[in-house]
């Protein structure tokens, strides 16, 4: 049976935030040259991405998402007793962004706060920590925030990533469930640091500090331009990794939960792009109606993609009590995780 690590937590509400500026395919086609807007849409499934303004950081987006959550009925800032912020674009090397967020939101000082540095798998990892804090009695109401601004790492002349990624943030309130039924979990996790080089910003950390040298732009075999200060993605390696690990993680979490695929109402994958999701859907034989997608107008928002889909399912009434959703996050690390949630 389920152990205490999955008992007693549920997702109460989700707030989202996207920056104002839009980068649509017409604008991209003008800048990148060789791809028509229709081709970008056909290949990626994305019409527009939202891009953080200059000087607007992931922490700013996170604060907006949190305020949108706090505006919802039944959500009270006073009750929040833990913040988990998942971001790969912190304001500072130190201090921790989650601590700054506590003050910006005017939350109590008698609460815990920390960051987790994960990308596309981060929301599911965050859920596991939040439900663990609640199950252990350490917290009652956890604010789980995801926010990233990959656009700031992306070279404007690198279509391999510029066409895909958008900026955005989510804020989820995870609360202890009064009837103690487990509605978050079980979880399975995966990590393969051998693939760290496949999705990376090579310079800017302690290993390889920014310098004149890391700023030098180079053109790759496909005509994309980037420096070591920019985001690099080996799309082929990420596709191979995804096709190998995601189906296994999905089967493992179903097994752990004692469920079969027919018991699952929706499968929410990290919203990478249309061709990756379509490859997964075909390989895993998931009916289209069971696989809600929401990236067409925001792009791949890294750790926020999964809560963005859940928010829409909740808002539209498509996610009802008793229904089960399987979540699978996967990407940079390489890191992956899957879990089952219900309301």
């Amino acid at each position: 049976m389920m152990q205490s690590n999955t008992v007693g937590a549920r997702i109460e509400a989700i707030g989202l935030y996207f920056p104002d500026a839009s980068l649509d395919n017409k604008k991209l086609a003008e800048e990148l040259g060789d791809w028509a807007p229709e081709k970008i849409l056909e290949k990626t499934g994305i019409r527009e991405r939202r891009i953080a303004a200059e000087g607007q950081t992931a922490l700013d987006l996170a604060e907006h998402a949190c305020r949108n959550l706090l505006d919802k009925p039944g959500v009270s800032a006073e009750e929040i007793d833990f913040i988990i912020l998942c971001t790969q674009a912190p304001d500072y090397i130190l201090p921790t962004s989650a601590c700054i967020l506590q003050h910006a939101l005017g939350l109590r000082t008698s609460i815990g706060a920390f960051d987790i540095n994960l990308g596309c798998s981060g929301f599911v990892y965050g859920l596991s920590i939040a439900s663990g804090l609640i199950a252990s009695g350490s917290a009652q109401q956890v604010l789980l925030v995801t926010s990233d601004t990959y656009s700031k790492f992306i070279n404007k002349k690198d279509r391999s990533v510029r066409t895909l990624f958008g900026d955005g943030a989510s804020a989820s309130l995870i609360v202890s469930s009064p009837n103690l039924q487990s509605t978050i979990g079980p979880f399975v996790f995966g990590t393969d640091g051998a693939g760290a080089k496949h999705l990376i910003v090579p310079a800017g950390g302690a290993r390889n500090a920014n310098s004149e040298e890391t700023r030098i732009e180079q053109v790759d075999g496909s005509g994309n331009v980037r420096s070591q200060d920019n985001l690099f993605m080996d799309g082929a390696a990420i596709m191979a990794f995804t096709l190998a690990e995601v189906p296994k993680a999905f089967s493992a979490v179903l097994l752990k939960a004692g469920l079969v695929i027919d018991d699952i109402d929706y499968v929410v994958f990290h919203q990478a792009n249309a061709f990756m999701l379509s490859a997964l859907r075909k390989k895993m034989k998931i009916p289209e109606e069971k696989m809600p997608c929401r990236f067409e107008n925001v792009g791949n928002t890294v750790s926020s993609t999964i809560p963005i889909v859940i928010e829409e399912l909740m808002a539209s009434g498509k996610f009802q009590p008793g229904q089960k959703i399987a979540l699978v996050g996967f990407g940079v690390g390489l890191s992956w995780s899957a879990c089952i949630i219900s309301l």
Partner: peptide, 19 residues
């Protein structure tokens, strides 16, 4: 190009179940 390679990885996986 890189996109063609990415798409072909998915195609080979789908048709032949091979990596």
């Amino acid at each position: 190009d890189s996109l063609a390679v990415v798409s072909t990885i998915a195609l080979i996986d789908e048709v032949y179940d091979k990596a």
